[in-house]
Design a protein around this nucleic acid. Structure first.
Lengths: 133, 133
DNA sequence: CATAAATCATACTAAAATGGTAGAAATTTC
DNA sequence: GAAATTTCTACCATTTTAGTATGATTTATG
């Protein structure tokens, strides 16, 4: 029952960008150093954030990364789901139901898991990046 | 962000025992067959449940397992934490703070994670085994 | 007491996920 | 054209997960 470093670090990166959100591009190595994450690993994380449209990037000298939107427009749940895939704590509550579990009809625990799924997603969707800084 | 099969299967085993809670010992292979879990894997799970005091076991012919208490006295959170260890979604909110994270003082995400930890544990602690059957 | 049915204990293992590293190519500014 | 930066792709070591395998121990019963 863990959030991986990808999700945790992504939040750190995003808050770092939000705290330095002045329109300038911020060099990845500065983010990595401030947040104490390996530069090369930070690259992978930012790459995912970029493909999801969360950050804008610029190459070359004085290039770097910056937020694509205002901090208040980022829902934390969206960031985490992008990094972690589904946040569903067990497989059988995920989108494609029944694929792993031929007993889902008779399974008395499935509604319990669905409820857990719900409280987790409602929580992470109740914060924006602005709330974290 | 997943609950492992140990936790999921443990809940299945416990609900199975609760549904057949007539004071008799129930053979492990019957539980395993009904719940569609490998017998040998079920043994490991029941072993943990037994050491935690959740089930009572009896060896030998007509031996098996049964609940140690009434279904309403089992808090689901206790069962899951026994199987999964801490349910804390990130390391730095677990009991021994700061051990992994030298930045916990300045980390703006930590209170967010603590909150997630809280909603998860409150949810799983709001159900008993009786509620699942 | 022998046997069968069951738990209990311990070790092993294949596959997947995690948490990175490494090297080089492409882009941009000066 | 040189330097600084992102981008892309591949690789890799360790840990976790999800079981299997083997065999010993205990108990009821005939």
């Amino acid at each position: 029952m863990k959030i991986s470093t990808k999700g945790r670090y992504a939040l750190k990166v995003m808050t770092d960008l939000a705290l330095h959100n002045n329109g300038e591009y911020i060099a990845l190595k500065d983010i990595a150093n401030r947040q104490n994450i390996a530069v090369k690993y930070t690259e992978q994380i930012v790459s995912i954030l970029g493909k999801a449209g969360f950050v804008e990037s610029m190459r070359g000298v004085s290039g770097g990364h910056r937020l694509a939107k205002a901090p208040s427009e980022y829902v934390i749940g969206d960031i985490l789901r992008t990094m972690e895939g589904q946040l569903a704590p067990v497989g059988c509550t995920a989108d494609i139901k029944g694929i792993d579990c031929p007993m889902s009809e008779s399974c008395s625990t499935v509604s319990f898991w669905r409820g857990l799924d719900k409280v987790i997603n409602e929580y992470v969707d109740s914060f924006t990046l602005q709330d974290l800084i």
